[in-house]
């Protein structure tokens, strides 16, 4: 198996505070990975470092390429559409994406908005949090990228939308692409995760296949995750 992501000795400081220190992380292609950790642990920062939105020291190679500007064409990130005015219609946002991302697949996008029940004539400013997140997911998954980074796609979302988003992830993730989903609430996505990466204490605290956790410890992903905070499970 080849690696879609190889991070080496990544350190990130912000406002004189160390957020991540000497992080090494390698992700294989074709996986769904849960990026877990408390709020403020550095999950979003890690994703932003991969896209180049945040600047740290160390090397990050995406598909073997460590030039930051090149990452952008391989990585599809759930950016929150801050570059658009609130009165921008969703179909205009889609046109923007279609124009600037050569890998944006209009057909996929149509399927996604149908599946996620999105009305593209709505304006960004008029969307509920859940609807906005669905729009972001549709735009992110409509690209044919090698690495998808979904930053807390389920926060503040009702359970029906959550189920739809999870289904759309399973349906539309290209087979050889890897998807990283960050969340601080695990149970709902646990069944779809190949591996979990836990960010804690300024680094990658654990990186394990999820079925290995179940086999090795006989506990669920959520229990395992919580135990790391309570010091219940001995970690090697």
């Amino acid at each position: 198996m080849t690696n879609v992501l190889a991070i080496n000795q990544l350190t990130y400081k912000h406002n004189l505070k160390t957020i991540l220190k000497d992080v090494d992380l390698t992700l294989e292609t074709g996986k769904i990975i849960g990026l877990l950790g408390e709020n403020g642990a550095g999950k979003t920062t890690l994703m932003r470092l991969i896209t180049g939105s945040a600047k740290g020291s160390g090397t990050i190679a995406v598909c073997g390429d460590s030039v930051a500007a090149h990452h952008k064409s391989h990585v599809s990130f759930t950016e929150q559409l801050r570059g658009f005015k609130p009165n921008t219609r969703i179909d205009r946002v889609a046109n923007f994406y279609r124009t600037v991302y050569p890998d944006f697949d209009g057909q996929r996008f149509e399927e996604l908005i149908t599946f996620l029940q999105i009305d593209t004539s709505l304006k960004l400013g008029a969307l509920s949090k859940g609807m906005k997140e669905k729009v972001v997911i549709a735009l992110t998954l409509a690209r044919q990228a090698q690495l998808y980074l979904l930053d807390e796609p389920f926060s503040g979302i009702d359970s029906m939308s959550r189920k739809r988003i999870i289904s759309s992830i399973i349906k539309w993730k290209p087979e050889d692409a890897t998807m990283v989903i960050s969340d601080h609430y695990v149970s709902e996505i646990a069944p779809i995760l190949d591996e979990v990466v836990i960010v804690k204490d300024q680094g990658i605290y654990a990186h394990k296949p999820s079925d290995a956790i179940r086999e090795e410890f006989g506990i669920g992903i959520e229990a395992y995750y919580e135990s790391l905070y309570e010091g219940g499970v001995k970690h090697d």
Partner: peptide, 11 residues
């Protein structure tokens, strides 16, 4: 803004 900075082009 990420909307622009994530466009696959160099700075």
């Amino acid at each position: 803004r990420d909307t622009y900075r994530l466009i696959p082009v160099g700075e």
